[in-house]
Design a protein around this nucleic acid. Structure first.
Lengths: 192, 192
DNA sequence: AATGCAAGCAAGTAAACACTTGCTTGCCAT
DNA sequence: ATGGCAAGCAAGTGTTTACTTGCTTGCATT
């Protein structure tokens, strides 16, 4: 079962680089070191192959924020870095899929994407902190979540094409974002 | 000279919807209600036509922050809304161009894009406020600028494909972002 | 040794693509 | 009225595309 995975990986790569129209069966076959006909024997059509390949390439194991928060600042740091890394590693796929979203809305399940799930998890985590009075009560946590996720997302997909805007490595940038975010939320550390 | 502009507009539209490969000369000609050959007579080749069309479609008149800030909060609100609107209206072009950035890096001049210029302007504006002690001195304004621009940018290009994440209209969302941003900066209003 | 299956190879099909050529039509200024 | 110019139309070029068919090769199981 090694060949099938090799084809799927090649297809996802070529799609990420050149989009649906640019991902010709010839190019995918070359990248996978496989005869073009093998693609059709395994997946039936280019469309089905790319669907499966993108599904595979976009699935990920979500990073989880702890239910009991001992050190919110440190926990958020680890979580934000992990999520930024996930999005950054998939930036080619994300950018291409977003660019083709109107033409092929079903090829990339945005509703269950990394960013949306992570956003929901972050919001739940912050709400817990708010009930523990570690976050000011008047803060709108949905806007805060959207703002922070937007910051991480924009960084992950723009960093490599706008180097002048993102001169620092992700670890430093995420720290800076978290500093500002903590100020905005008036985040307090829990007692002892 | 109306025909030339009609072709350019049609080309930019079709490109935004379907990308470079999808923007066939036939489709562009149909959209512009023009014979396909007219495209070649006017622009020589598909590549040159699309280059010019995208150049046209991405040029914009930047919204300017005042040099003397009387009411930072209100000034930032107007500025942020105008910039969000600019990006939102061009979201199809931005998404498509970003998706094809590696394959065709020169087709969309990202370095001089709306977002980058706006970011520089915002940073200069905030630095002025910081020298007037309206912003806490220890704030890293470059990170703050990147964060706010990232929030605006992610909102503008994701809002229509992730409605569950952006339920409020832009005017309300931008207000919420500004609330949080002002808290993060510890922004004060100038005296009298 | 015989069978079956997975993969490769050669060749071809119909459609779409960018772009060209030759000729016709309509309009505007002289 | 006549000339020039901008646009349309018809037809065709060579290339690339997804996908098919017929046949061969190699390997693993019985």
């Amino acid at each position: 079962m090694e060949l099938r995975d090799r084809i799927l990986e090649a297809a996802a790569q070529v799609y990420s680089e050149t989009g649906f129209r640019g991902a010709t069966t010839r190019r995918i076959a070359e990248r996978a070191h496989v005869n073009e006909i093998t693609l059709f024997r395994h997946f039936g059509s280019k469309t089905r192959l790319l669907h499966e390949a993108i599904q595979c390439a976009s699935s990920s194991t979500p990073c989880i924020l702890p239910a009991q928060s001992a050190n919110p600042r440190a926990e958020l740091r680890i979580w934000a870095l992990a999520n930024h890394r996930e999005m950054f590693e998939r930036r080619f796929l994300i950018r291409t899929a977003m660019g083709e979203m109107e033409e092929r809305p079903d090829i990339f399940p945005m509703d269950r994407s990394q960013a949306v799930c992570a956003g929901l998890e972050l919001k739940a985590y912050l709400e817990r902190l708010q009930t523990e009075n570690l976050i000011a009560a008047e803060i709108d946590l949905r806007a805060a979540t959207t703002m922070f996720m937007g910051t991480l997302f924009a960084d992950a997909i723009s960093r490599d094409i706008l180097p002048s805007m993102y001169p620092d490595p992700p670890e430093i940038s995420v720290d800076q974002y978290l500093d500002l975010f903590a100020r905005a939320l008036a985040l307090k550390e829990p007692l002892s």
